[in-house]
Design a binder for these strands. Sequence first.
DNA 1: CATGAATGAGACTTCATTCAT
DNA 2: TATGAATGAAGTCTCATTCAT
Lengths: 188, 188, 188, 188
Amino acid sequence: MNKKQKIIEATIEQFINKGVEGTKISDIVKAAGIAQGTFYLYFPSKFSVMPEIAKYAVDEIMKSIEENVNLDESFDQKIEQLIKAVFQINEQKKELFAILYAGLAQSEHLKQWESIYAPFYEWVYNLLNEALQNGEIRSTIDASRTSRILIGLFESTAEQLYLYDSTTTEEIQAQYEELVKFTKSALK
Amino acid sequence: MNKKQKIIEATIEQFINKGVEGTKISDIVKAAGIAQGTFYLYFPSKFSVMPEIAKYAVDEIMKSIEENVNLDESFDQKIEQLIKAVFQINEQKKELFAILYAGLAQSEHLKQWESIYAPFYEWVYNLLNEALQNGEIRSTIDASRTSRILIGLFESTAEQLYLYDSTTTEEIQAQYEELVKFTKSALK
Amino acid sequence: MNKKQKIIEATIEQFINKGVEGTKISDIVKAAGIAQGTFYLYFPSKFSVMPEIAKYAVDEIMKSIEENVNLDESFDQKIEQLIKAVFQINEQKKELFAILYAGLAQSEHLKQWESIYAPFYEWVYNLLNEALQNGEIRSTIDASRTSRILIGLFESTAEQLYLYDSTTTEEIQAQYEELVKFTKSALK
Amino acid sequence: MNKKQKIIEATIEQFINKGVEGTKISDIVKAAGIAQGTFYLYFPSKFSVMPEIAKYAVDEIMKSIEENVNLDESFDQKIEQLIKAVFQINEQKKELFAILYAGLAQSEHLKQWESIYAPFYEWVYNLLNEALQNGEIRSTIDASRTSRILIGLFESTAEQLYLYDSTTTEEIQAQYEELVKFTKSALK
DNA sequence: CATGAATGAGACTTCATTCAT
DNA sequence: TATGAATGAAGTCTCATTCAT
């Protein structure tokens, strides 16, 4: 594997284990099995690895969607599956997403993340557009604006649930169902 | 003003200007006009000032709600006004909320923030409960769960808008209207 | 002794022993008997100690002049004594002056050194002015310009001699005499 | 051009722009258009390029002398022209000479520079010798010693003038004239 | 001869924390 | 309580040098 990829993977691992601020460059290079100076050949700082991590996270989201959502089913079912996909990936990679959500609030890199998140936005946008054409959702919906609203809605709800280690499975299931009802109703 | 209050205000100011990680204890004491050692008489670290900041932020949210929401009007109007209140305070204090949202993702303090956020949750919870009793929203709504969903929905949408300096007023207005429609429909 | 003074003395000592570039901040603080961080309370870098060193060197020059030059004697004798003073101090502190001459060529600090060297310039200027009034030197001399020429002449000659460890005493004596003749003739 | 020559020229360029200590090997190889490791095939360190730079500088001095001094004219005119030549080259290459003067004070390489400077010393030495034979200067002059004194005198005066960016043309002209008078008088 | 990615020792600088006053 | 000079551990980053190709 090339060294850049090694650095990215080691950084994700260390960020998850120790948090962004708690991670030292020396932790990263140790985990990556490279020399201290080598890190700086590829990135000027640990923060500049963040976009790569965001790309990885969005890839994971998209993979989760692909695995969970059956495009042949009804719109309602696809919404359920989509929410399930978001919940699942947030559960599996909760530390990773905690890092991303915290980092997202640092506006300096927002522009970059706009483009990194694009595949997710687009997927939801297309879903809504198709549903609009099929008359499956109310015609007053603006697909572009609503795709942003939906993504924020799903992620904020998932975040609330999974960042608490103490949340029970029943609790999560109940909140999932509430969110599904809420969303379907919102789009009707 | 007593020194503790001075420290809290100086910390908010510095966190907003330089970010949490970028703020040094020496910045805070300089801004507060106190000696370096004095800080430690009140707080063990800059992070331990965070709950005070969160309290301040929730106070600001509640003030914005009180100013914007007329409890005598219809449920639909109250929802509109509530969203307006959330948008307004996110606009006015966007750096402050950026800090909070970033901090929220660090699960260590989530428990504390649960209780700090309580007034806001409760306000929305009561709003929903009353609407349920008046038959103004669908009866399948769980007021407690939905209050969390709504708060996440409103704040994530506002955050997306205001953390971009480049978002236009028209864009914000349009997104506001989309969100109002979305929310009303969700609760119907 | 206060810590700033300790730093200055330790820096001179280390610069002389190891050269400017060869001296580490850690060498200075070790020699000064203070903590690493303390250095930065007083100076932002080792280079910023240079003006203090230049002041010290000019003090040494002026002390050497005071010790060697008898103001009551004839102009010719005072010139001889002045050159002797410059030679003596260049011999005694050759490493210190080597550092200064090297540093002088870095134009960034020249303005500062102008003012630090002022006492020496002024002393020579006054000497020439008095001699002009007494008719001891040719009237076509501009005291201000010639003071700069003389200082350059004396220091460059001394520098050439003392920076070579191998220069013999006889050689130095002969060059001293040649320089005295040269200077007297120049001013006649 | 061969790579060694490329390295020398690139080093001069970089030393002038960034100073000796501020220049990295990587700057040199970039400017020379060669690979990092290639530098070490020709020089063991950046400092070891210094003698080559000194040779270049002395070549420049000698060229300036050849251009400015008409050997057929009177001794007084030749002195004027010589000083003009030194001033001119110090003006044109002030950064280069700043580097040399600073480097000269590092005694380690003085021996080498003795021989590099030889052509300049010799030229002045011959000038003085000839003038002695023609009775154009006082017979008490030792040509060898005085050639060193003169070179120090000219260069120190020029250095003082040109290292200050702010020195005016009039000021330079006046100092030039004072130096010419001074020198002629010294040799009479 | 030439390359240039990789190395890693080590200097620099910061800054939370202490403690004598 | 309050002060602020001093501390020194710890992390960042640089850059000369190497060596497999």
